[in-house]
Write a protein that binds this DNA or RNA. Sequence first.
DNA 1: GCCAACGTTGGC
DNA 2: GCCAACGTTGGC
Length: 153
Amino acid sequence: MARQYWLMKTEPDECSIDDFAHDPTKAIPWDGVRNYQARNFMREMQHGDQVFIYHSSCKDIGIAGMVEVVKTAYADPSQFDPNSDYVDNKSSKSNPRWSAVDLIFYRKFPRVLSLQAIKGIDAMQENPLIKKGNRLSVIPFTENEWNAILAHI
DNA sequence: GCCAACGTTGGC
DNA sequence: GCCAACGTTGGC
């Protein structure tokens, strides 16, 4: 199947593009997703899929760079960790409720492409990212949307 | 810090 | 299965 394109939101205080860039050889587990729609998208991800990293709830809101999927969905360990904020007592090991994927650095943009700029891109008008009240933290991108973003970097 | 919009929970 | 209450997200 052809490579797919995604966007994942993160608060840069938690995990930013710089955390990936810091060691480009090190895969970082993307765990803690506790939304079913976002989880389902993560389960569709394939090795080699590319992902925009979006910084939310911060000073410099927008797309900061790109990472790549290096490990497809597996049971998110944090759901079973009683010390984790993300523990889910209703999840079972035989049928884990939540999934994680591993991501690796691909590229940091010279500057963050701001949400405001993204809203101005024609090809992005149907993308959930710019819809008011949207809370989805994992968003699929069409190839057209993906290329339109790259054309503005 | 505010608050609108949304997803989830739980009583019925 | 409905829906009100609640907690969270995320831009401003």
